[in-house]
Design a protein around this nucleic acid. Structure first.
Lengths: 153, 153
DNA sequence: TGATTTCTTAGTAAATAACTAGGGATTAAA
DNA sequence: TTTAATCCCTAGTTATTTACTAAGAAATCA
């Protein structure tokens, strides 16, 4: 039930872009440095985020990436699902009716549990935006608490 | 963010034992047959459940396993965490202060998100007992809906 | 023109998941 | 007292996934 580095690194990178929102394109090299992630790997993560229209890119020298929308319009949920796929504990709660994995799709005692888990995760991540993270970050900076983003691998 | 077969198979096996609660020891062979799981693999899953005092075993011929407590006293949460470890999206929300992974343990914008996810999952699984599953199962059987447990791999 | 950057794909090493296999210990029943 | 059925334990194996590394093409600014 762990998130992979794709989701975690991707979220860090998006938060980094959110902190620099409105300041033109930010290069992956600088994000990678600040967030301690390999540039090559980060390139692979930003690609689906761009295709999902969450970031825009500017090619060439002095190019880089920027959020495609305001931080308030981008949720943690959309970032994580773009990078990790549905945040579901099993495949059966996600795949739709026709192509169902399981014969007991109409009713299954364990499936209802997995659906509840899925809903609760979705509800949490969809309720948090990048703007919430920024606000949170700044409040804690002001109150002298060392406010940062983790270096966890 | 997927559960592994350990958790899913283990939950199926425990539900099977719950349906047979009070009827003496149930052999792993019969559980494995009903739930379509390899006996050898199931043995590896039942072992931690026994060590966690969730099931009791009777050795020898006509032996088997039975729940160590009433189905109402055993939650889905304790079963899943016994088999999967903490249902947390990252290690950093679980490991305690001293041996912290991350320098920014005192405050981290992403960690608070992972903590919220962790809490919401925990809250769901801890609120559902095997008895709830049995009740659910029986209600649906009575109302002629094919009520079963999934065969999902 | 050259430096800087995005973009894309292929490959790879390590870790994890999902078992398989086999043998010892225990006990009920024949 | 033997046999069959069961739990119990550990080691090994295979397949999949993760987490990158590598390298080069395309675009653009100075």
């Amino acid at each position: 039930m762990k998130l992979s580095t794709r989701g975690r690194y991707g979220l860090k990178a998006m938060f980094d872009l959110a902190l620099n929102y409105g300041e033109g394109p930010i290069s992956l090299t600088s994000i990678a440095e600040r967030q301690a992630i390999s540039v090559n790997y980060l390139e692979q993560l930003i690609s689906p985020l761009r295709k999902a229209l969450l970031v825009e890119s500017v090619r060439g020298a002095q190019g880089g990436y920027m959020l495609a929308k305001a931080p308030a319009e981008i949720t943690v949920g959309v970032i994580l699902t773009t990078l990790e796929g549905p945040l579901a504990p099993t495949d059966c709660v996600v795949i739709d009716g026709d192509e169902d994995i399981c014969d007991h799709s109409n009713y299954c005692v364990t499936k209802v549990i997995y659906e509840k888990i899925y809903e609760s995760i979705t509800s949490v991540v969809n309720s948090i935006s990048l703007q919430h993270m920024i606000d949170d970050y700044k409040v804690n900076q002001e109150s002298q608490i060392i406010s940062s983003i983790c270096e966890c691998k």
